[in-house]
Simulated scan of single mutants.
Amino acid sequence: MKFISPLSWSGGKAKHFDKIKALLPAKFDKFIDLFCGGASVGLNVLDQQLCNKVVFNDLHMICILV
């Protein structure tokens, strides 16, 4: 099940998460979501437990979730 961000963001990548996930390595420690916008990619990485740490970055926010 995909996590859908509560933040509405034009140009969001939520629809493309399956394609993005296919490009990710099998195991990794930290995911840095550059240009996170609505944060749907980083939130899906956390929700699907693909790594231990996600860093969200955008012009107006920087947040690290462990």
Rank of each mutant, 00 (worst) to 15 (best):
G38N: 06
D18G: 08
D18Y: 07
S8M: 09
S40L: 04
S40E: 03
S8Y: 13
I32D: 00
L65Q: 11
L46Q: 11
W9C: 10
S10L: 09
G11M: 01
V41G: 02
I4Y: 13
I64A: 07
D29M: 03
K53C: 06
S10C: 10
D58P: 05
C63N: 12
K15N: 10
K2D: 00
S10N: 14
K30N: 03
D29T: 06
I62F: 15
L24V: 07
I4G: 00
L46D: 01
S8R: 14
L65I: 15
V66Y: 07
M61K: 14
K30Q: 07
S5T: 13
L46R: 04
A39I: 01
F31I: 04
F3N: 07
Q48M: 12
D47E: 13
L7Q: 13
K19W: 02
Q48P: 01
K30Y: 02
H60M: 10
L50E: 04
L50Y: 01
C63M: 08
K21Q: 15
K13D: 02
N57H: 11
V66D: 15
G42Q: 00
P25F: 04
K21D: 05
A26I: 13
I62N: 15
C51M: 04
A26Q: 15
L23C: 15
H60S: 12
A39M: 14
L23W: 06
N52R: 10
K15M: 07
L24W: 08
K27R: 14
A26L: 12
